[in-house]
Protein backbone atom coordinates (compact mmCIF):
# COMPACT_ATOMS: atom_id res chain seq x y z
CA UNK A 1 0.00 0.00 0.00
CA UNK A 2 1.58 3.33 -0.97
CA UNK A 3 1.62 6.24 1.44
CA UNK A 4 -1.06 8.28 -0.33
CA UNK A 5 -3.48 5.35 -0.31
CA UNK A 6 -2.69 4.77 3.35
CA UNK A 7 -3.36 8.41 4.24
CA UNK A 8 -6.66 8.31 2.36
CA UNK A 9 -7.56 5.08 4.14
CA UNK A 10 -6.78 6.62 7.53
CA UNK A 11 -8.98 9.61 6.70
CA UNK A 12 -11.83 7.27 5.77
CA UNK A 13 -11.28 5.20 8.91
CA UNK A 14 -11.47 8.35 11.02
CA UNK A 15 -14.78 9.14 9.37
CA UNK A 16 -16.07 5.65 10.26
CA UNK A 17 -16.19 4.25 6.71
CA UNK A 18 -17.02 0.53 6.85
CA UNK A 19 -15.47 -0.12 3.42
CA UNK A 20 -12.16 1.33 4.63
CA UNK A 21 -12.34 -0.91 7.67
CA UNK A 22 -12.92 -3.92 5.41
CA UNK A 23 -9.92 -2.98 3.29
CA UNK A 24 -7.69 -2.82 6.37
CA UNK A 25 -9.15 -6.08 7.69
CA UNK A 26 -8.47 -7.84 4.39
CA UNK A 27 -4.91 -6.64 4.29
CA UNK A 28 -3.84 -7.12 7.88
CA UNK A 29 -5.96 -9.93 9.33
CA UNK A 30 -3.68 -12.76 8.22
CA UNK A 31 -0.36 -11.06 9.13
CA UNK A 32 -1.76 -10.08 12.53
CA UNK A 33 -3.08 -13.57 13.15
CA UNK A 34 0.25 -15.16 12.21
CA UNK A 35 2.10 -12.68 14.43
CA UNK A 36 -0.18 -13.28 17.41
CA UNK A 37 -0.30 -17.05 17.00
CA UNK A 38 3.48 -17.32 16.88
CA UNK A 39 3.78 -14.91 19.80
CA UNK A 40 1.19 -16.58 22.04
CA UNK A 41 1.78 -20.13 20.75
CA UNK A 42 -1.96 -20.70 21.15
CA UNK A 43 -4.48 -20.42 18.34
CA UNK A 44 -7.48 -19.68 20.57
CA UNK A 45 -5.67 -16.89 22.44
CA UNK A 46 -4.38 -15.47 19.16
CA UNK A 47 -7.93 -15.34 17.77
CA UNK A 48 -9.25 -13.65 20.91
CA UNK A 49 -6.50 -11.03 20.80
CA UNK A 50 -7.04 -10.54 17.08
CA UNK A 51 -10.73 -9.85 17.62
CA UNK A 52 -9.89 -7.37 20.37
CA UNK A 53 -7.38 -5.66 18.06
CA UNK A 54 -10.05 -5.06 15.42
CA UNK A 55 -12.50 -3.77 18.00
CA UNK A 56 -9.84 -1.37 19.25
CA UNK A 57 -9.40 -0.09 15.71
CA UNK A 58 -13.12 0.60 15.45
CA UNK A 59 -13.32 2.40 18.78
CA UNK A 60 -10.07 4.34 18.43
CA UNK A 61 -10.34 5.20 14.73
CA UNK A 62 -11.75 8.74 15.28
CA UNK A 63 -8.71 9.56 17.43
CA UNK A 64 -6.15 8.32 14.89
CA UNK A 65 -3.65 10.91 13.76
CA UNK A 66 -3.88 11.84 10.09
CA UNK A 67 -0.39 10.47 9.40
CA UNK A 68 -0.87 7.18 11.25
CA UNK A 69 0.86 4.15 9.72
CA UNK A 70 -1.89 1.53 9.87
CA UNK A 71 0.36 -1.56 9.93
CA UNK A 72 2.64 -0.55 12.80
CA UNK A 73 -0.38 0.84 14.70
CA UNK A 74 -2.19 -2.50 14.47
CA UNK A 75 0.91 -4.50 15.43
CA UNK A 76 1.43 -2.16 18.41
CA UNK A 77 -2.13 -2.73 19.59
CA UNK A 78 -1.79 -6.49 19.13
CA UNK A 79 1.50 -6.55 21.01
CA UNK A 80 0.07 -4.43 23.86
CA UNK A 81 -2.92 -6.73 24.11
CA UNK A 82 -0.56 -9.70 24.31
CA UNK A 83 1.40 -7.94 27.09
CA UNK A 84 -1.86 -7.32 28.99
CA UNK A 85 -2.83 -10.95 28.48
CA UNK A 86 0.54 -12.07 29.88
CA UNK A 87 0.15 -9.78 32.89
CA UNK A 88 -3.34 -11.10 33.62
CA UNK A 89 -2.07 -14.68 33.25
CA UNK A 90 0.75 -13.91 35.65
CA UNK A 91 -1.70 -12.58 38.23
CA UNK A 92 -3.99 -15.57 37.75
CA UNK A 93 -1.10 -18.01 38.02
CA UNK A 94 0.25 -16.33 41.14
CA UNK A 95 -3.21 -16.47 42.76
CA UNK A 96 -3.59 -20.11 41.88
CA UNK A 97 -0.12 -21.01 43.16
CA UNK A 98 -0.87 -19.31 46.44
CA UNK A 99 -4.08 -21.29 46.64
CA UNK A 100 -2.89 -24.74 45.73
CA UNK A 101 0.88 -24.33 45.85
CA UNK A 102 1.57 -26.93 43.18
CA UNK A 103 0.33 -25.22 40.05
CA UNK A 104 2.67 -26.01 37.18
CA UNK A 105 4.55 -23.05 35.74
CA UNK A 106 3.75 -22.14 32.12
CA UNK A 107 5.79 -24.64 30.16
CA UNK A 108 6.34 -23.75 26.52
CA UNK A 109 3.94 -25.68 24.32
CA UNK A 110 4.39 -26.33 20.62
CA UNK A 111 2.89 -23.49 18.63
CA UNK A 112 -0.09 -24.34 16.41
CA UNK A 113 2.12 -23.69 13.40
CA UNK A 114 4.77 -26.03 14.67
CA UNK A 115 2.26 -28.87 14.66
CA UNK A 116 0.97 -27.92 11.23
CA UNK A 117 4.35 -27.30 9.57
CA UNK A 118 4.63 -29.45 6.48
CA UNK A 119 8.33 -30.10 6.19
CA UNK A 120 10.80 -31.18 8.79
CA UNK A 121 12.85 -28.05 8.17
CA UNK A 122 9.80 -25.89 8.68
CA UNK A 123 8.99 -27.76 11.88
CA UNK A 124 12.50 -27.16 13.13
CA UNK A 125 12.37 -23.44 12.47
CA UNK A 126 8.89 -23.10 13.99
CA UNK A 127 10.07 -24.98 17.09
CA UNK A 128 13.23 -22.90 17.40
CA UNK A 129 11.20 -19.71 16.95
CA UNK A 130 8.64 -20.78 19.53
CA UNK A 131 11.40 -21.55 22.04
CA UNK A 132 13.02 -18.10 21.76
CA UNK A 133 12.52 -15.60 24.61
CA UNK A 134 9.52 -13.43 23.83
CA UNK A 135 11.53 -10.22 23.25
CA UNK A 136 13.61 -11.90 20.58
CA UNK A 137 10.66 -13.78 19.17
CA UNK A 138 8.55 -10.65 18.65
CA UNK A 139 11.49 -8.83 17.05
CA UNK A 140 12.07 -11.66 14.58
CA UNK A 141 8.36 -12.03 13.90
CA UNK A 142 7.96 -8.35 13.11
CA UNK A 143 11.05 -7.91 10.97
CA UNK A 144 11.82 -11.41 9.70
CA UNK A 145 8.35 -12.84 9.19
CA UNK A 146 6.08 -9.81 8.72
CA UNK A 147 8.64 -7.73 6.86
CA UNK A 148 8.37 -4.54 8.92
CA UNK A 149 11.33 -2.17 8.76
CA UNK A 150 13.60 -1.75 11.77
CA UNK A 151 12.10 1.70 12.37
CA UNK A 152 8.54 0.35 12.29
CA UNK A 153 9.39 -2.59 14.54
CA UNK A 154 11.12 -0.31 17.03
CA UNK A 155 8.00 1.86 17.06
CA UNK A 156 5.85 -1.20 17.74
CA UNK A 157 8.11 -2.44 20.57
CA UNK A 158 8.74 1.09 21.90
CA UNK A 159 12.51 0.83 21.78
CA UNK A 160 15.09 2.82 19.86
CA UNK A 161 16.01 1.61 16.35
CA UNK A 162 19.51 0.77 17.62
CA UNK A 163 18.10 -1.35 20.41
CA UNK A 164 15.86 -3.11 17.90
CA UNK A 165 18.81 -3.75 15.57
CA UNK A 166 20.71 -5.28 18.46
CA UNK A 167 17.71 -7.38 19.46
CA UNK A 168 17.34 -8.68 15.90
CA UNK A 169 21.01 -9.52 15.68
CA UNK A 170 20.92 -11.47 18.95
CA UNK A 171 17.70 -13.18 18.02
CA UNK A 172 19.11 -14.25 14.63
CA UNK A 173 22.23 -15.61 16.28
CA UNK A 174 20.22 -17.48 18.89
CA UNK A 175 17.84 -18.91 16.32
CA UNK A 176 20.70 -19.92 14.08
CA UNK A 177 22.44 -21.69 16.98
CA UNK A 178 19.25 -23.50 17.99
CA UNK A 179 18.71 -24.63 14.39
CA UNK A 180 22.28 -25.90 14.16
CA UNK A 181 21.82 -27.80 17.41
CA UNK A 182 18.59 -29.33 16.15
CA UNK A 183 20.26 -30.41 12.89
CA UNK A 184 23.23 -31.85 14.78
CA UNK A 185 20.92 -33.80 17.07
CA UNK A 186 19.02 -35.14 14.04
CA UNK A 187 22.24 -36.21 12.30
CA UNK A 188 23.45 -37.97 15.45
CA UNK A 189 20.14 -39.80 15.60
CA UNK A 190 20.46 -40.88 11.95
CA UNK A 191 24.01 -42.10 12.46
CA UNK A 192 22.90 -44.18 15.43
CA UNK A 193 20.18 -45.75 13.30
CA UNK A 194 22.67 -46.56 10.51
CA UNK A 195 25.18 -48.28 12.82
Amino acid sequence: MDRDCELALVARLRAGDAAAFDAVLEQFNTPLFNFLARLTRRRDVAEDLLEETWLRLVTRAPALREDTRVGPWLFTVARNLYASYCRSRLVEDSHITTLIGLWPCGTPQPSPFESAAATESEQRIEAALAALPVLYREALLLVGVQGLSIAEASEVCRVSPDAMRQRISRARALLSRRLDEAIAARLTGLREVET
Partner: peptide
Protein backbone atom coordinates in the same frame (compact mmCIF):
# COMPACT_ATOMS: atom_id res chain seq x y z
CA UNK B 1 13.83 -19.02 5.92
CA UNK B 2 11.72 -16.93 8.25
CA UNK B 3 10.24 -15.07 5.27
CA UNK B 4 9.25 -18.32 3.63
CA UNK B 5 7.44 -19.72 6.65
CA UNK B 6 3.99 -20.91 5.85
CA UNK B 7 1.19 -18.35 6.21
CA UNK B 8 -1.84 -19.61 8.09
CA UNK B 9 -5.33 -18.19 7.91
CA UNK B 10 -7.50 -17.32 10.85
CA UNK B 11 -10.83 -19.09 11.26
CA UNK B 12 -13.09 -17.79 8.47
CA UNK B 13 -16.32 -18.12 10.45
CA UNK B 14 -14.85 -16.17 13.32
CA UNK B 15 -13.55 -13.54 10.93
CA UNK B 16 -17.07 -13.05 9.61
CA UNK B 17 -18.36 -12.65 13.15
CA UNK B 18 -15.62 -10.11 13.93
CA UNK B 19 -16.41 -8.20 10.75
CA UNK B 20 -20.13 -8.13 11.59
CA UNK B 21 -19.39 -6.98 15.15
CA UNK B 22 -17.10 -4.22 13.93
Amino acid sequence: RLRTLRVHDADAARLDRVRARC
